[in-house]
Design a protein around this nucleic acid. Structure first.
Lengths: 239, 239
DNA sequence: CCTTTTATAGTCGCAATGACTATTAAGGGG
DNA sequence: CCCCTTAATAGTCATTGCGACTATAAAAGG
């Protein structure tokens, strides 16, 4: 059914929307922009924009990521397609099909980026409600996806700077999952997974001033965790 | 950057493409249609089509699924969004953004469906190469996703009819993963997972004529497997 | 010098699982 | 009809993974 002459087809506007996530002060934060015009004028929304004629959704997403964060180099950042939202009424003006992405940053780079964004701010995830369009749902889906992928991939390092301690890595899990983990067990598990992290030879860092300095690691070559690092299964989950 | 006046935007054609998968004679099969016109005339392709003006991608995918399989009722079938393919050159004629789906059917319903499809056929997965557009990649992505989701969800039952034996369920895993599983261990694991399957009280079925009749089960209420049913980790997987 | 704090090392026991062996219940061939 | 084959089901055993804990080491602060 790819015959263009058999079915008339409607042209659609295609956008990308980004859930840009980071960890700040021990809490998950998301980058939001304030809308300057209708619809949803004055409301907060996920950054995003239209695909340019020669762009793929991935290219457009990375361009928007650079524009909205104001970072000079976004090539190393984790960017991942979530899914596409295409409900006919998701934009009151016209048909807009949006390809949603999740982007993960180590720590906040800047309060908010320049570019032509009216205003961009890091907002704690828990306070990011009542967003424009269906962005509440996109953001929730992004968090769910990231939380799930922490279990069986090395995604957690995408939230960390190039060099990090195991305590920092553990905080990624604890913050995204909202649960506390046992430190010795977490350490044993991470170190037992080949390719998850690799030690930086001579380095050690004082994590908070007090306490024993922690060894420093960097991300390893592995992409997946075998076996996975499972969340404690909460009680009965029928659906 | 959702201001329509700030950026001109290109209209795009939006389609859905379906990787309709089933298990037939112990092999993974995919539903393909033969293209009648350029480009790729005479080549096989995944079924798909344009979004209608009032449809979401999910609605369009289910409509196409009904049309192409010829099934009267497709509401119970598993249909899941894979990802969106938007490379600018993926269709030589124009910009087409395609939202890809995977659909899972119990056993082959009919050789091929009616509707306006020129020709639709079940093709063994391993022989489905050289498809039109980027459909080789979409199909491979579909298989990867399904294989991965077998590990930590109850997706396998989507390949089975309403009532099935544990041997049939095991064949789903073995066929999709391409590995052999130990039968007693598989049985123990499945039955130990609450909500995965539930027994059909008095039923038993002769699976192949020979051998002891197998107990019959139906899909349970659970959606996820805790802990997961892991594939034997193949050796080092750097990327 | 002692207390606090944080990282790291190690112990113990249970639960999950891979690799097997044994038994049961059907069909088919002599 | 009796065995042989086939396939489902029942069970065993040792190893591994992991949750819960305890102990030690190395820093800062009073």
């Amino acid at each position: 059914m790819h015959g263009y002459d058999k079915h008339a087809f409607e042209p659609f506007a295609v956008t990308v929307d980004l859930a840009v996530l980071t960890l700040r002060a021990g809490a998950l934060h998301v980058l939001l922009v304030e809308r300057g015009q209708e619809p949803y004028a004055g409301r907060w929304a996920l950054p995003g924009g239209f695909l340019l004629p020669a762009e793929s959704a991935e290219t457009a997403a990375r361009r928007e990521l650079a524009e909205e964060t104001g970072l000079a180099d976004v090539t190393g950042l984790h960017l991942e397609q979530l899914r596409t939202y295409s409900e006919p009424d998701r934009d009151p003006r016209m048909r807009v099909v949006s390809v949603a992405f999740a982007a993960l940053l180590p720590d906040p780079p800047e309060p908010h980026g320049g570019g032509d964004a009216a205003e961009a701010r890091w907002v704690p995830y828990d306070e990011a409600r009542g967003l424009a369009f269906d962005h509440d749902r996109i953001l929730a889906d992004a968090r769910d996806r990231v939380g799930a992928k922490l279990e069986y991939t090395c995604l957690a390092t995408a939230f960390c700077p190039a060099e990090f301690t195991l305590g920092e890595l553990q905080q990624v899990y604890e913050t995204v999952w909202g649960t506390a983990l046992d430190r010795p067990n977490f350490r044993r598990k991470v170190l037992a997974t080949p390719g998850f992290v690799e030690p930086v030879p001579g380095a050690a860092r004082l994590t908070g001033g007090r306490g024993k300095p922690a060894a420093v690691y960097r991300a390893g070559a592995a992409a997946t965790l075998h076996p996975p690092l499972l969340r404690t299964p909460r009680e009965g989950r029928p659906a």
